[in-house]
Design a binder for these strands. Structure first.
Length: 424
RNA sequence: GGAAGGGUGGCGGAGCGGUUGAACGCACCGGUCUUGAAAACCGGCAUCCCCGCGAGGGGAUCGUGGGUUCGAAUCCCACCCCUUCCGCCA
C-alpha cells in the first residue's frame, strides 16, 4: 500500500511515477472521493463529539439524582444522526481502501524505463557459457536419459505442468535445496524457518498477492478460505505482521525452503516442455526485514547472496535490472538473475530479488520503533529467490551434461550426493 | 469433532454500563544521587485521523464484525484465534 499521506498531498507525483509502469492513476476520481471522505469524516467527528458530550451530561445528571427523561429525546435524535453519517463514511472509506489495495508500489528512481522485459538492463555477466564439442540436449532429454524424469506419469496423477522425479535426479534436486540452505545460514547470516504452505486471505493481502492476483493462486475449499503459497515470500515476510520489532533486532534475515504453487493463469502454451514452468516447484527463498534507510544496500546484499549460489555451482549467469514495465506489483526495484541454459541457448530467470520498501509493511502493519522519533514506523521488506530449486536442477543438468549422457555433479553438491561425482 | 477458559498498550496484567485511553508492574526515555555504574527516588511514556500558525481542542481504536443503549473494554449474537482436557490422528 502506498503512503496515503503522499497520495493526498501530491497525487500528481504519484501518478507520474506509476505511469512509468503503465499504471493509470485516476487522480480526478481520487480527488472527488477523498474530498467526500474528508467532509464526511469531519461531520461524523462533530456529531460524535456532540453525542459524547450529551451522554456525559446525562451521566452527570443521573449522578445528581435528577430527572433524565427530558434529555433522552435529544440523545436519541443524536444517535440517529451519528448512525446515518457514519454509515455513509464507512461506505466511502471501504471504497477508498479497496482502491488503495489495488495500486502498485512506486518505482525507485534508478529503475530503467521500458514497457516489457526487452527493455531490462544488463547489470553484469558472470561466467562464460561452456563450449560443447557436441550438440547439448535440453534438461528433459538429459533427465529422461538418466531415467530421472517422468512427465507422463505426472500428468496421469495431476494433469499438465507437474513432474515426477526419481533416483539420482530426485536426489540432486534435494541436494541443491540442502546446499542453498546451508550456504545462506552459514555464510550469509540467515535464520532457517519452516512455515505453513497454506495461508489466509489476510496474509496474502499483506504481501500484495491479494486482492488483485487471486486467479494466479490455488485456493483450498475451507472456511475460512486458505490458499497454497505461490512463494515462501508470503508466509516468511508475514512473520512480522502486526508486530513492532525492536530496533536492536534488525535486520531480520530468514531463509526457507518450500514448495510453491501457481496456477499460471494466462501462461497457456508457454514453456510447456519440462521443468521450467510448473504448477508446483521448490524454491529456497531469502527474506530480509530492515530499517528503511538500509533497504537499498540490503537489496544489493540479498542479490549477491543469491548470486553466490550460482557462483558456487559454477553456472554462468547474468544480473538484469528490471525495467518499469516488468517490475512486480509490490516491488520498488528488482534484479533478476538469469542462468545460462545450453539446451535453450539462452539465459533464463532463476531468481528475482526485490525491495518492497514500506509497501508490504504498511499492508501488514509491520513496524519498528525508530529511536530517532520514538515512534513505530513501517519497516522495509525484501525478498529474493536464493534460488529456484527446479530451475537450478535444469541448469545443472544442461550445463554439466556429457556426450555419453552422464552428468557431472558440481563439486559443492558432492557432499550432499554421498560423494558421487556423476549421475549416469 | 466435544467441553471449559481466555483474547486489553512494546511485554505482563487489572478493569466488567457513565468522570477509564484504560490501575499496577516490567521495559523504555529524561532527571536527582554517585568518581563511574548499579540500586533508590522523581517525572515522562499507545496508535491513527481531523481542526488550529501555536497553545490547545475534537474523533476513533481494549481479537473481528454486527446488535442493545442517551452512553459499551464492560451486556447480547456471530465469526476468528489461543490455552487446557477428551476424542481422533501422521
Amino acid at each position: 500500500m502506498l503512503d496515503p499521506k503522499l497520495l493526498r498531498t501530491d497525487p500528481e507525483a504519484v501518478a507520474r511515477n506509476l505511469a512509468r509502469r503503465g499504471h493509470v492513476l485516476d487522480v480526478a476520481s481520487f480527488r472527488r472521493i477523498e474530498e467526500r471522505r474528508k467532509a464526511l469524516a469531519i461531520e461524523t467527528d462533530r456529531l460524535r463529539a456532540e453525542r459524547n458530550l450529551h451522554s456525559k451530561a446525562i451521566g452527570a445528571a443521573k449522578g445528581r439524582g435528577e430527572d433524565i427523561a427530558p434529555l433522552m429525546a435529544r440523545g436519541e435524535a443524536l444517535a440517529g444522526e451519528v448512525a446515518r453519517v457514519d454509515a455513509e463514511l464507512t461506505a466511502v472509506q471501504d471504497e477508498l481502501d479497496a482502491w488503495l489495495l489495488g495500486i502498485p508500489n512506486l518505482l525507485d528512481a534508478s529503475v530503467p524505463d521500458g514497457a516489457d522485459e526487452s527493455a531490462n538492463v544488463l547489470v553484469r555477466r558472470v561466467g562464460e557459457p561452456r563450449r560443447f564439442d557436441f550438440e547439448p540436449k535440453d534438461h528433459v532429454a538429459v533427465g529422461e536419459g538418466l531415467d530421472g524424469f517422468d512427465f507422463d506419469t505426472a500428468s496421469r496423477l495431476s494433469g499438465a505442468r507437474f513432474a515426477v522425479m526419481r533416483g539420482g535426479v530426485a536426489r540432486l534436486h534435494r541436494a541443491l535445496a540442502q546446499f542453498m540452505l546451508d550456504l545462506h545460514t552459514r555464510e550469509h547470516g540467515y535464520t532457517e524457518v519452516h512455515v505453513p504452505y497454506l495461508v489466509s486471505r489476510a496474509t496474502l493481502t499483506g504481501t500484495g498477492q491479494l486482492p488483485k492476483f487471486e486467479p494466479d493462486l490455488f485456493a483450498v475449499p475451507h472456511d475460512p478460505a486458505l490458499f497454497l503459497i505461490p512463494t515462501a515470500e508470503v508466509p516468511v515476510t508475514n512473520l512480522v505482521r502486526d508486530r513492532v520489532v525492536a530496533a536492536g533486532d534488525l535486520p531480520l534475515r530468514f531463509v526457507a525452503h518450500t514448495p510453491c504453487f501457481r496456477s499460471e493463469a494466462g501462461a497457456h502454451g508457454k514453456d510447456t516442455r519440462g521443468l521450467i514452468r510448473q504448477h508446483q516447484f521448490d524454491k529456497v527463498e531469502l527474506v530480509q526485514i530492515v530499517r528503511p534507510a538500509d533497504s537499498p544496500q540490503a537489496l544489493e546484499a540479498l542479490t549477491s547472496h543469491a548470486e553466490a549460489v550460482l557462483a558456487a555451482l559454477e553456472l554462468p549467469y547474468r544480473v538484469v535490472a528490471l525495467c518499469a514495465g516488468d517490475i512486480g506489483f509490490a516491488s520498488t526495484k528488482t534484479y533478476d538473475l538469469e542462468v545460462w541454459l545450453p539446451g535453450q541457448g539462452k539465459y533464463r530467470e532463476i531468481s528475482s530479488c526485490s525491495n518492497c520498501d514500506a509497501f508490504q509493511a504498511r499492508r501488514m502493519q509491520a513496524r519498528w520503533r525508530n529511536p530517532e522519533t520514538a515512534k513505530p514506523e513501517p519497516l522495509h521488506t525484501l525478498n529474493g529467490s536464493g534460488v529456484a530449486v527446479g530451475r537450478a536442477l535444469v541448469a545443472v543438468l544442461e550445463n554439466y551434461q556429457r556426450q555419453d549422457g552422464a552428468v557431472t555433479i558440481p563439486d559443492v553438491l558432492r557432499p550432499y550426493m554421498g560423494g558421487a561425482k556423476e549421475l549416469r
